[in-house]
Nucleic acid binder design. Structure first.
Length: 825
DNA sequence: CTAGGGTTAG
C-alpha cells in the first residue's frame, strides 16, 4: 500500500503505458482486497449466535466458496427465513459455483415461486451449459407456472437456443409478450440470429431498434465479425463512431480477429493504439485478442510482448500464446509455454489439447501422440468431441502413422465433413492416393455428408498423384455444380491436376479463370510448365506474374529453378537464384540449394555445384548431395561420385535409391568390384528398396503395377506382350542396359528383371487394353529407369503411339522414337 | 437480488 501511494505521487511523470498499467493494478488489487475482506466477514458473521441480528444480505455478499453457500442455506432454514427472495439468491450462488443440482434443490424448496425465482433457475441452467434443459424449462414457465416471464427471462433463454428453429419459436413468444423493444432483448436477438448465420434478420432487428446502446452496436459488429464479413463490420464501426459512440473493450475484442482475417495489420495496430489511448490494453479480452491477431499476422514479437505485459492471464491467454508459436512453426517454444502454463497451475482445456496435438505431430513423436490420445480418451468432451477427434486423426496422419489415424477415424462416434477431409488428405499427403480415392468413394456413399472446399483440395491432389484424369474431371464437374470453381485453392488443385496429367493447355486455360492475386496458382502453373520441360515458358509466366504485381515467394523460386534445371537454362537459373536473394530478400532453403546443385550438375558444372555446396550456410541434406550424385551418374564421373556418396551416406544411409545410383555409376564404367561393394553394404544394412509403382488409367479405372508383380488379372498377357515387344525393338536397334540392375543374378535374369519394371508393365497393359495408336499415359512414383526410358523410345516408334511417362521428376513425352526431354534428365 | 454485446478451434 505504501509503495502504491508513493507511485501515485509519481504518476504525473509517468508515460501513458505506465499510468494505464497502474490503474489496472489498482482495479485488480481492489477486487482482491474485497474478496479477502468478504471471506473474512463470512467467517466472523457465522460464529455469532444471536440469530435475530444476522444481516443475511451481508452474508450473501460474503460467500466466496461453495461451502459458504451450503452453511448459509442451513442457517436460513434454522432461522426460518427460507423465503423466496433468499432461496432464489441461493440458486444464483450455487449456479455461480457450478453446482446445478444444489441450485435445483434450493429452487424446489421455494414455497411460492415468483418470476425472480424462475429467472434465477433459468440463468443457473444456461450458465452451466444445460442448454436443452433451459429451453424446456422456459416453456414450463410459460405454460405451467401461471406466471408471466419478464424481460430478465429472455436473454438467457435466447443464449440457450442451439438451433434456428428454437430461436425463432422463442422470438415468437417475445413478440407475443411485447418485449421486443427492450435493449437487452434486442442485443440477445441479434446475437442469436448471428449464431445461425441469419445476418439479414440480425441487421433488420438492429435497424429497427428504437433505442440502441453500445452493447447493441457491439452485438451487430460481432455478428459480422463472427460470420467473416469483416468489411461490413468495419463499416458499422464507422457509423457507430460517426454517431458519437466510443468503442469499448468489447468492440476492440470483436474487431481484432477480423483484422487478422482481412490480413490488415494497419487497422489492427490502430485498434491497439486506440486501446492504449483509452487504457484498455491490459484488459484480459483485449490482450488475448491482440496476441491472437499478432500471431495470425505472423508478427510473433508483438504477440509475445503483449503476453509478457499482461497483469493477469487466463487459460485463453495461455492457449493463444501456445497456438501462436505452434502456428508460426516453432513447436519448441510452443511446448515450453505449455510447460510454463502447467507450472502456473492451469490445466489444459479443449483448445490447449488441439494445439498440443499439432505440436506433437510436428515433433513426430509417436509416444507423446499415444499418451495425448489416451489422455483425451479418458475425458469426455461432449459437443467438442468431433473437433478433438479430428485433431487426433490429423495428428497421426501428420506423423505418418496412417493405421492409427484410420483407427481413430473409425472410432469417432460422430463423423463430420472435416473428419472425412482430414482422413482423405492424410492418405493423399502420405502418398497413399488409392486409399484416399477409396475413402472418397465411401464418403460419396454417405448421403448426409456434403463435400466442401476442404474435400476437393484433399481429393484432387490424390487424383493428380496417380494420374486419375478421368475421375479428376468428374470431380471437376461436381465442383462446378457447387459453384466453387473460382476458389483459389481448388482452382490451383485443378491446374495442378490437368498439368500433371499432361493436359497443359487445359491447365493454362483454367489458370486464366482462377483469381490470381496470390502466388499460389502462379507457383502451380510455373511448376507444371517446368515438369513439361518448358523452362522458357515458365520464365515468361514468371515475368507476367511480376508485371501483375504478384509477390513471388520461396515456392515460386523452387518451381522456377527446377524449371530452368529441366530445360538446361543454366544462366537463367543462376540469375533467378541471385534475384531471389537480392531483390526479394528470400534466403535460399534446402530445396533451393538442391535445385541449384541439380541445375549446375546436370549441365556438367560439377565443380561449380560442389563449391555451391561448400558455401552453403545450412548443413546440406541428402537431396542436395543426391542431386550431385545424379549429376556424376549423368556425366560418368565415378571418382567424384564415390567422394560425393561418402558425404551422402553420412546424412542419409537408409535410402536404397542412392545406392542404386552409385552402383549404376560403377556398372557403367565396368567396375564390378564397386558394384559388389555397394550391393554388399545394402544387404548388410538390411535395406529394402522403396517399392516402385506405375499407374495407368483405363476406362475410368486406375491400375497400379508394382515391379515384378504378377498378380494382375491380365498378368500373363502383359508378359507375353512384353516379350514380343522386346524381340521386335531389338531388331530396331534396342540394346538392353543391365547396369540398372542392382541384384546379383545372371544376365538373362537381369533382362527379365528390367522387363518386370513397373513402368513397362503399365505400358504393356496400356497397349493391350486400348485401341491401336491411342496415346498412353503412365505415372511412376520414382524416377524412370534409364533402360526403360530407352526401351520406351523404341516402343513408341514401333507401336506408333505417343507415350507420356510422368515420373517423380518430370514429364517424358515419347513420340516417334524421341523423348521430349532430349535424354537430358 | 436476476438480464444483453467480447478472446482461443480440427
Amino acid at each position: 500500500m505504501t509503495s502504491m501511494s508513493y507511485t501515485c505521487r509519481l504518476l504525473p511523470t509517468c508515460n501513458e503505458t505506465k499510468v494505464s498499467k497502474f490503474l489496472h493494478l489498482i482495479q485488480s488489487s481492489c477486487q482482491l482486497f474485497s474478496t479477502v475482506a468478504n471471506s473474512l466477514q463470512f467467517d466472523s458473521w457465522e460464529h455469532r449466535d444471536e440469530e435475530k441480528d444476522v444481516d443475511f444480505n451481508l452474508l450473501f455478499r460474503s460467500c466466496t466458496k461453495l461451502h459458504h453457500v451450503k452453511r448459509l442455506q442451513a442457517r436460513l432454514l434454522v432461522s426460518g427465513r427460507a423465503e423466496s427472495f433468499f432461496l432464489s439468491r441461493l440458486v444464483n450462488l450455487y449456479a455461480h459455483f457450478g453446482d446445478v443440482s444444489f441450485a435445483e434443490k434450493a429452487f424446489n424448496h421455494i414455497p411460492n415461486k415468483d418470476i425472480y425465482a424462475w429467472n434465477s433457475m433459468v440463468s443457473a441452467y444456461v450458465g452451466n451449459g444445460r442448454f436443452y434443459k433451459t429451453v424446456a424449462f422456459f416453456y414450463e414457465l410459460l405454460y405451467a407456472s401461471g406466471l408471466r416471464p419478464d424481460c430478465y427471462t429472455i436473454p438467457p433463454v435466447l443464449k440457450a437456443c442451439k438451433d434456428i428453429v428454437n430461436g425463432k419459436k422463442v422470438h415468437c413468444s417475445i413478440l407475443k409478450m411485447g418485449f421486443e423493444w427492450d435493449v437487452y432483448v434486442g442485443a440477445s436477438l441479434i446475437n442469436m440470429y448471428s449464431r445461425f448465420g441469419s445476418l439479414e434478420a440480425a441487421r433488420m432487428l438492429f435497424d429497427h431498434m428504437p433505442v440502441r446502446d453500445r452493447a447493441s452496436w457491439n452485438a451487430m459488429i460481432s455478428a459480422y465479425c463472427q460470420n467473416r464479413n469483416g468489411a461490413e463490420a468495419l463499416r458499422v464501426v464507422e457509423i457507430m463512431r460517426a454517431e458519437g459512440i466510443r468503442m469499448d473493450a468489447v468492440t476492440i475484442a470483436s474487431v481484432l480477429p477480423i483484422c487478422a482475417q482481412l490480413d490488415d495489420i494497419v487497422t489492427g495496430k490502430l485498434m491497439h493504439l486506440y486501446a492504449i489511448k483509452c487504457g484498455l490494453e491490459f484488459g484480459l479480452f483485449v490482450s488475448n485478442a491482440l496476441i491472437d491477431m499478432y500471431a495470425k499476422l505472423s508478427t510473433l514479437g508483438h504477440a509475445r510482448r503483449v503476453f509478457d505485459q499482461m497483469m493477469e492471464r487466463d487459460i485463453v491467454s495461455w492457449n493463444s500464446i501456445i497456438s501462436a508459436y505452434e502456428q508460426n512453426e516453432d513447436p519448441i517454444t510452443a511446448r515450453s509455454f505449455f510447460d510454463k502454463m502447467q507450472q502456473a497451475g492451469i490445466g489444459p482445456d479443449f483448445y490447449t489439447l488441439i494445439s498440443l496435438s499439432s505440436i506433437v505431430a510436428k515433433f513426430c513423436d509417436y509416444r507423446h501422440a499415444r499418451s495425448l490420445h489416451g489422455f483425451i480418451m479418458r475425458r469426455s468432451w461432449c459437443a467438442e468431441e468431433v473437433v478433438i477427434g479430428n485433431a487426433i486423426v490429423d495428428m497421426y496422419a501428420k506423423i505418418g502413422d496412417l493405421d492409427s489415424a484410420r483407427a481413430a477415424f473409425e472410432w469417432l462416434h460422430i463423423k463430420d465433413v472435416v473428419s472425412w477431409n482430414t482422413m482423405i488428405s492424410g492418405y493423399a499427403q502420405n502418398g497413399l492416393a488409392s486409399e484416399a480415392i477409396e475413402l472418397y468413394r465411401m464418403m460419396e456413399d454417405c448421403e448426409e455428408m456434403i463435400p466442401n472446399q476442404g474435400t476437393w483440395v484433399s481429393i484432387l491432389p490424390a487424383y493428380s498423384h496417380v494420374g486419375a484424369l478421368q475421375q479428376g474431371m468428374r470431380t471437376h464437374g461436381t465442383v462446378l455444380k457447387n459453384g466453387l470453381y473460382l476458389d483459389v485453392y481448388i482452382g490451383t488443385c485443378l491446374v495442378d491436376l490437368y498439368g500433371k496429367c499432361g493436359k497443359l493447355d487445359d491447365a493454362l486455360s483454367l489458370f486464366h479463370e482462377v483469381p490470381r492475386e496470390s502466388s499460389i496458382p502462379w507457383n502451380a502453373m510455373i511448376s507444371c510448365l517446368g515438369v513439361h520441360g518448358g523452362g522458357e515458358k515458365a520464365l515468361k509466366l514468371f515475368r507476367e506474374m511480376l508485371a501483375e504485381g504478384v509477390q513471388p515467394d520461396r515456392v515460386t523460386f523452387v518451381s522456377l529453378l527446377s524449371a530452368c534445371s529441366h530445360s538446361g537454362l543454366v544462366s537463367d537459373g543462376q540469375q533467378c537464384f541471385e534475384t531471389m536473394q537480392e531483390k526479394y530478400g528470400i534466403k535460399p532453403n534446402m530445396q533451393h540449394y538442391s535445385c541449384m546443385v541439380d541445375l549446375l550438375g546436370r549441365a556438367g558444372h560439377l565443380d561449380k555445384a560442389y563449391s555451391l555446396i561448400k558455401s552453403m550456410p545450412l548443413q546440406p541434406d541428402a537431396a542436395v548431395w543426391g542431386a550431385l550424385l545424379a549429376a556424376c551418374r549423368l556425366h560418368g564421373n565415378s571418382q567424384f561420385g564415390k567422394y560425393v556418396s561418402d558425404h551422402l551416406f553420412e546424412v542419409e544411409s537408409e535410402n536404397v535409391g542412392y545406392y542404386v545410383l552409385l552402383s549404376n555409376i560403377y556398372a557403367h564404367i565396368g567396375n564390378r568390384d564397386g558394384v559388389t561393394k555397394v550391393r554388399t553394404s545394402v544387404r548388410d544394412k538390411g535395406l529394402k528398396k522403396t517399392p516402385g509403382w506405375s499407374s495407368i488409367e483405363v476406362n475410368n479405372n486406375v491400375d497400379v503395377f508394382y515391379s515384378g508383380n504378377q498378380t494382375h488379372p491380365k498378368s500373363d498377357e502383359i508378359y507375353e506382350e512384353l516379350r514380343a515387344l522386346t524381340e521386335k525393338i531389338k531388331t530396331l536397334g534396342y540394346v538392353t542396359d543391365i547396369s540398372y540392375v542392382l541384384q546379383d543374378v545372371e544376365e538373362d535374369e537381369k533382362e527379365h528383371i528390367l522387363m518386370g519394371h513397373s513402368e513397362r508393365l503399365a505400358i504393356a497393359y496400356g497397349i493391350i487394353s486400348t485401341p491401336p495408336r491411342n496415346p498412353i499415359r503412365i505415372f511412376k512414383n520414382l524416377r524412370v529407369c534409364g533402360d526403360c526410358h530407352n526401351a520406351t523410345k523404341f516402343i513408341s516408334k514401333l507401336t506408333e503411339r505417343e507415350i507420356t511417362v510422368r515420373d517423380s521428376n518430370r514429364f517424358h513425352h515419347f513420340k516417334d522414337g524421341i523423348c521430349s526431354c532430349g535424354d537430358y534428365w
